[in-house]
């Protein structure tokens, strides 16, 4: 029997299309528009073609910011993922202390980003900050406002403080789902602590860790607020990550064309990396499942 085709059903999709158009497509097209034109205000546009893209692709400034960005994401992932797992492994499994740990762990995640920035900005100050002042009193030469290394350390420690909880909580959820029988079997099989981690805990946590790494990569690659509040991208350009540079370019220098081209490439890079990452991880999963 042939099914009747009723094209009026498409009308039901219209509301979603409208919402998506106004929330994503139209704003994005505005950026595309800016990236392909030059404007001097008064709503006058001059066709620039791919000029801005060419300028940005070859710009040392963008290359430097991208390099810093990649370095930053790599460092925080390398710290937060193992540290999060380590914390999750050592958290109490049940009872009052487990609840207390969960609440304490969740706290940094609930603080608004610019507040986190302000906290660390003050915390690290040499004149009045607890951390900065203490370090100075101990004779350690620490000053995030004029030493690039100190600035980096501050920004990284801040991110670790802010986001390790997320990894830990996800890993903890993964660990909680492992049936007790697995640990018992491992004891019977005389497995070492490392073998238990390697063959039971890690495989069972893989799914949540994939999500944790993906979230932390995307967030750290787009980081803006916290380092902006703490260092403002300095000293010099040493902590100017992609977002910070982009805002400087778009709002500080009002280079709308290059900034728009920059935005689009930035977006595509994140999309690409996330896609590659996700595909690789799910393929690994499928292979081991076959």
């Amino acid at each position: 029997m042939e099914k009747t085709v009723n094209n009026r059903a498409w009308l039901l999709v219209l509301p979603v299309l409208a919402v998506v158009a106004f929330s994503a497509v139209i704003p994005l097209m505005t950026v595309v528009n800016y990236s392909l034109n030059d404007t001097f205000g008064n709503n006058q546009f001059f066709w620039a073609g791919l000029e801005w893209f060419e300028e940005m692709v070859t710009s040392d400034r963008l290359h430097d910011a991208l390099g810093r960005q990649i370095l930053f994401s790599a460092i925080i992932l390398a710290i937060e993922v193992p540290l999060g797992i380590l914390i999750a492994l050592n958290m109490p499994k049940r009872g009052f202390w487990a609840s207390l740990c969960l609440v304490l762990m969740a706290l940094p995640l609930l603080i608004p980003f610019n507040v986190v920035g302000t906290i660390w900005q003050i915390f690290g100050r040499v004149d009045i900050g607890l951390l900065g002042h203490t370090l100075a009193a101990l004779g350690i030469d620490y000053n995030y406002t004029n030493d690039p290394l100190d600035a980096w350390i501050t920004v990284i420690v801040m991110d670790v403080w802010h986001w390790t909880s997320l990894v830990a909580l996800l890993a903890y959820a993964g660990l909680q789902s492992i049936p007790e029988a697995y640990y018992q079997a491992a004891r019977i099989d005389q497995a070492s602590r490392w073998a238990v981690f390697r063959y039971i805990e890690l495989p069972k946590m893989k799914g949540v860790l994939l999500i944790a790494v993906l979230l932390r990569f995307m967030d750290s690659f787009m980081i803006y607020t916290e380092p902006f509040v703490v260092t403002g991208g300095g000293p010099g350009n040493s902590t100017t990550f992609l977002s910070i540079d982009l805002v400087k370019m778009a709002i500080g220098q009002f280079d709308l064309g290059p900034a728009a081209a920059f935005s689009i490439m930035y977006f595509l890079v994140i999309l690409l990396v996330s896609w590659v990452f996700y595909t690789v991880m799910t393929n690994l999963d499928r292979e081991s499942g076959a």
């Binding site: 018992q184 079997a185 019977i188």
Partner: peptide
């Protein structure tokens, strides 16, 4: 004495296998 020291084998009601192996 811990389980390992007793050198005992035990098979449980529901299967326990090491997935990645």
């Amino acid at each position: 004495a811990p389980t390992a020291e007793r050198n005992i084998a035990q098979v449980f009601q529901f299967p326990v296998v090491y997935d990645t192996m």
